[in-house]
């Protein structure tokens, strides 16, 4: 189940990153909102990983090279603008993807029917914050612009084909560009001009080629589980 693993890893890893915000958010309402999104994503991850095998074995006992999440979702939280830019790019993608999967009758249709509602909320949350930060103060504008530019090169990977998904991810690209472009323009932010591919070849995360922060993230995530082999929790 290559596709279940790919989508599951995306949700698992981004959920973990959002979990790192807990207790650190800029305002109490965002503690609630970020945790809420993290929980939705973790719920998706559990369903998807269970389609591919045992959720805990897959989450805790694979090494870095066996994870197939996008490099985008493993990027460190950075400041609030980086978190929001990452969320805008990914939630827009995930919402478009789940809307399409929900409309079909493939293996992901049932999950997608629920996830499309969740991702609509995530997308709205990211869009509203992009507007507030982009069209807020000079400082917030500058930070949002920096974040959008910095993460742009990880977005091309989203449209690489995933085996077994039953949908053409490449075809989502136009709709994604239009949607993200419209939000950025409303926020007074330029659409980044750089290439939409990372330091590795496009599709790198999907092939288990990750960025350096990912290994440390996994070390933290897996440490306790690996310290007690065979235990149940």
């Amino acid at each position: 189940m290559t596709a279940a693993l790919a989508l599951g890893d995306d949700a698992l890893v981004l959920s973990h990153r959002l979990g790192e915000w807990m207790g650190h958010a800029p305002v109490l309402e965002e503690e609630v909102a970020l945790a809420n999104i993290a929980l939705d994503l973790l719920g998706q991850a559990r369903v998807l990983l269970s389609m591919a095998g045992d959720e805990d074995e897959l989450a805790y006992l694979r090494e870095e090279r066996a994870f197939s999440n996008l490099q985008l979702v493993e990027q460190p939280n950075g400041d609030f603008a980086h978190t929001i830019a990452r969320q805008l790019y990914f939630s827009t993608y995930q919402h478009l993807l789940y809307a399409e999967l929900a409309a079909g009758d493939g293996p992901f249709a049932a999950l997608a029917a629920k996830a499309v509602k969740e991702t609509a909320y995530h997308r709205d949350h990211a869009e509203q914050w992009t507007l507030r930060l982009g069209d807020g103060t000079d400082l917030s504008h500058q930070r949002m612009r920096t974040a959008c530019t910095a993460l742009w090169r990880f977005t091309g990977e989203m449209f690489q084909p995933v085996e077994g998904l039953g949908t053409d991810l490449g075809a989502l690209r136009t709709g994604w560009l239009e949607a993200v472009g419209a939000v950025l323009r409303r926020a007074g932010l330029p659409v980044p001009e750089g290439a939409q591919s990372g330091a590795w070849t496009a599709g790198a995360g999907r092939q288990g080629l990750h960025t350096e922060p990912f290994g440390r993230m996994l070390a933290e995530m897996q440490h306790l589980h690996r310290s007690h082999p065979g235990a149940s929790w």
Binding site: L12, A35, L42, Y60
Partner: peptide, 24 residues
């Protein structure tokens, strides 16, 4: 929240996240 990133199973992680969210 100190243990969210190290929770030993996905089920426990979800429970803990929901709890910390409730506290907020």
């Amino acid at each position: 929240a100190n243990w969210i990133t190290r929770a030993p199973s996905l089920r426990r992680k979800a429970i803990l996240m929901a709890k910390v969210q409730d506290e907020a």
